[in-house]
């Protein structure tokens, strides 16, 4: 189903079109754990030909930098606007996946995105084959896009 390829393509399109940050994708996470500490996670559900949850996990400083670049302003703390911005990016990534899977006759509907924050978060590599995590590098650090899916 090429989740990783589709996630990388749509994320690169979003960052080049609306965020204007250089971004590079690494290979899907396979081994090492990443403790990202204080973080913001944006999430959105997808249903239809399969069910999935897409998450964007950002360390605080990366989330602030991405939201600042997208809105053209500086953020010093994670506030409602930062969470809203990351949620909207999750929405666009999910929309890009929906569009790409539709070309393979896999139809999806999107839920409403949301975002949460926390003080300690560790990304661990997937133990099952229905979970993909892609690390992305930007100037301020690394963030991760994760999709967990169940085929109907």
């Amino acid at each position: 189903m090429e989740f990783a390829k589709k996630i990388v393509e749509t994320t690169e399109e979003i960052f080049s079109t609306m965020i204007f940050m250089d971004i590079s994708a690494a290979k899907p996470l396979e081994q090492s754990k990443h403790n990202i500490g204080g973080h913001i996670t944006a999430m959105i559900g997808l249903t239809g030909s399969f069910a999935a949850m897409l998450n964007i996990h950002c360390p605080e400083e990366v989330g602030l930098a991405i939201a600042g670049a997208m809105l053209g302003m500086e953020f010093e703390t994670i506030d409602a606007d930062v969470k809203d911005t990351l949620g909207e990016i999750a929405n666009m990534v999910a929309g890009g996946l929906k569009e790409r899977f539709a070309k393979e006759d896999l139809m999806l509907q999107l839920a409403i995105p949301t975002a949460v924050t926390g003080k300690s978060y560790t990304i661990a590599p997937p133990k099952t084959n229905n979970r993909v995590i892609i690390p992305f590098q930007v100037e301020s650090g690394q963030f991760f896009i994760e999709i967990k899916y169940n085929l109907n």
Binding site: L71, G72, A80, D84
Partner: peptide, 12 residues
Amino acid sequence: DDSNTMRKIVAR
């Protein structure tokens, strides 16, 4: 748009 930030981005 339900996203406050997206409304700002569209206006910009």
